[in-house]
Amino acid sequence: MRLFSSLFSLLLLTAGAAASKKSATDRFDEYHVKAQSASPVKLKDASYKSLTGAPRDYSVAVLLTALDSRFKCQLCTEFQPEWDLISKSWAKGDKSGDSRMIFSTLDFSDGRDVFLSLGLQTAPVLLLFQPTAGPNAVAVQEPLRFDFTSGPPTAEQIHAWVSRHLPGRPHPPVKRPINWMRWLSTVTIVLGLGTVLVTASPYILPIVQNRNIWASISLISILLFTSGHMFNHIRKVPYVAGDGRGGVSYVAPGFQSQFGLETQIVAALYGILSFCAISLAVKVPRIADSKTQQVAVIAWGGVLFLVYSFLLSVFRIKNGGYPFSLPPFM
């Protein structure tokens, strides 16, 4: 029985080798030449089979992707430039083929059968076929699969992954092309801005030196920071969320969570409270008329009291056990 099965597999192997007709080295040379002109190598059903067929003494990385806009594969399109970048820089850095590594792409529209035979439901899939023969051969026949769980990876991440599985071989580094356009535009913009600033300085200087403007800038930034704006920025919290009954919930439950709108409400409350305090401290004593002053004091004091009461009630939503409150929002 065992003899038979091994004979059978041997037969299969020879058949596979015959199907690809050429020896592994020839195939590598063929695709390596292709890769030198255009990497990653564009594959079709047939060429996929011949390239990844065993035995092979080289490694192949195949990106199975679906770039056609019909499939709406956002990750595929986002990852494609990075994939082109790493395969180009690898091909450029390894002209003689010492690393024995080919980068290739198989699009769904060119290789429907391969997708079906592999039973793939999602794209992109990145497979790394390790050599089955030669000095670098590994025991595991199955291709390695890259994990796309955390968004589109950068070329450097792919490079690290590939290099890890090709020990003892050259790993041409990723070379990002210099973005001349960006440099040029940056320099132009900087020079342009400088010119504008110099020519317009008689008009801008009074604004820059205006104390009121600086006061408002600093107050606004303080209000932003103390109302948890940085938390929103870092945690990328939702702006608002539904309350499950079709309505909108403005305040997130829990002490360590918040919504974008919630922080804006809180910043506004702080702003009103500060403004009332400033008015009481600075503006009201400067009202020369006794009656107006009386009205202003009552108004600002009343608003301050009401808003502070409301703020406390909002805080009690966040922290259920908080015991203090002011009327009327008890």
């Binding site: 107050l219 303080i222 209000l223 409270l273 500060s274 305090a277 401290a281 600075v282 502070y308 703020l311």
Partner: peptide
């Protein structure tokens, strides 16, 4: 926390 901006303004 809300007297803080007022103080900075002063």
């Amino acid at each position: 926390i809300w007297l803080f901006p007022a103080g900075v303004y002063l």
